[in-house]
Design a protein around this nucleic acid. Sequence first.
DNA 1: TATCATCTTCTACATTTGTAGAATTAAAAT
DNA 2: ATTTTAATTCTACAAATGTAGAAGATGATA
Lengths: 121, 121
Amino acid sequence: MTLSNSEEQLMQLLWKQERAFMKDLVEAYPEPKPASTTVATLLKRMQDKKFVGYKQLGRSREYFPMVPQKDYFSKQFKGLIKNFFNNSPSQFASFFTEETNLSRKELEELKTLIDSEIKKK
Amino acid sequence: MTLSNSEEQLMQLLWKQERAFMKDLVEAYPEPKPASTTVATLLKRMQDKKFVGYKQLGRSREYFPMVPQKDYFSKQFKGLIKNFFNNSPSQFASFFTEETNLSRKELEELKTLIDSEIKKK
DNA sequence: TATCATCTTCTACATTTGTAGAATTAAAAT
DNA sequence: ATTTTAATTCTACAAATGTAGAAGATGATA
């Protein structure tokens, strides 16, 4: 099960807010904001897909993500890696280092990070 | 303009082959292979979207990608980074190093790679 | 309490996507 | 020359997606 584009956009807003009422979500959209019924429809579809849950609070519902952003990202990312780099993260890594313009400092930091990962092994 | 899922799947096949006739593309699909008319439809839509071109060779057409795989990947990837890591590649990098299970050897290689990138600066 | 502000659910509808049959064409093989 | 193979274009249609109005429900507020 995947999210469609507009569902994913909404999901991003929800992840950012952690938990939110419909109104907050609608407001979080950049102009032009969608009709609230549009958001309602999306939320409902996302509930069907088990991506969103809610807690009834008096009159209305407080929505929250049922899938952590990280998990979702991982899945997306693995998909990309699989298609474009033949399932080889290290192959991707070299692409990344070469193509992304990281500053010297960022590269240094990354190196440090890698070192600490190596130590963990 | 983006590719839909099934279009992207076909695009992957085309990238792999570099240039191909319809038949080759259909054959490259895993079972169950789609009807060739399905592929034809997709190819046509992809032409409209300027993702695919072809060269008329006698009776039929040799199709080829008009968008390099790398460019396409970059765009996708940047999109992900933007949504999930607030446009910060270095933030992504740390996620990557921690979450992807690279072996010690791969990590070492990556480090070397980063070093050579640093030298370039 | 009458009115407002919100929400939610239903319904609707145009587009896009996923898939493929029918018909036509033309080159290839026998 | 006839049959076969591969392609191409048209048409079709169900499912998914993007958007939103209408109507009903319920707290909040004047």
